[in-house]
């Protein structure tokens, strides 16, 4: 066991981990931040996406030891300070961007990373950016629509819900 220390959602966090402990395991089991989901555990599905030093990464495919000293942001920090939903989260609700909700933490974290770099993405750019996030309920259409709406773009021309 070795100690790791990092900043998670603005607060100092540390714990004893094995070499093989994944960042997702450290977040969920040591810090009890279970909003980060582990879907496939094979780097395919993106439910575990968090931000490490501002960049979207799959937390099931990074060792906790590699996050030593890093600034980590999880879905738990995405709501506004007063507890209301962030613009992206509210757009997912307004446009039915989730059904079972399992993929949603990763979708929101990926969407937030995309909009940081590209504030008004096209539909095609959103779909390409979400290549590493799998949703088995929605068919993606309303997720894409929610992200377009969250970026302030008119979504009235996007068809059926």
């Amino acid at each position: 066991m070795a100690q790791v220390s990092m900043t998670v959602n603005g607060k100092a966090a540390s714990g004893d981990v094995e070499g093989r402990t994944l960042l997702s395991t450290f977040l969920r089991e040591n810090l009890e931040l279970t909003g980060t989901h582990v879907g496939c555990d094979t780097s395919q599905c993106g439910a575990c996406v968090v931000h490490v030093n501002g960049e979207a990464v799959k937390s099931c495919t990074m060792l906790a030891a590699e996050a030593e000293g890093a600034d980590v942001t999880t879905i738990e920090a995405m709501a506004n300070a007063d507890g209301s939903l962030s613009t992206i989260q509210q757009a997912f609700q307004d446009h039915h961007g989730l059904q079972c909700g399992f993929c949603t933490p990763g979708m929101v974290m990926s969407a937030s990373a995309l909009l940081k770099d590209n504030p008004t993405p096209s539909e095609a750019e959103i779909r390409e950016y979400l290549e590493g996030n799998i949703c088995r309920c929605t068919g993606y259409h309303n997720i894409v629509k929610a992200i377009m709406a969250a970026s302030g773009q008119d979504v009235s021309s996007i068809a059926a819900e």
């Binding site: 799959k58 990074m62 290549e131």
Partner: peptide
């Protein structure tokens, strides 16, 4: 290559 999260690592 891969997807955005993979490209970040």
């Amino acid at each position: 290559i891969g997807d955005p999260a993979v490209r970040n690592r």
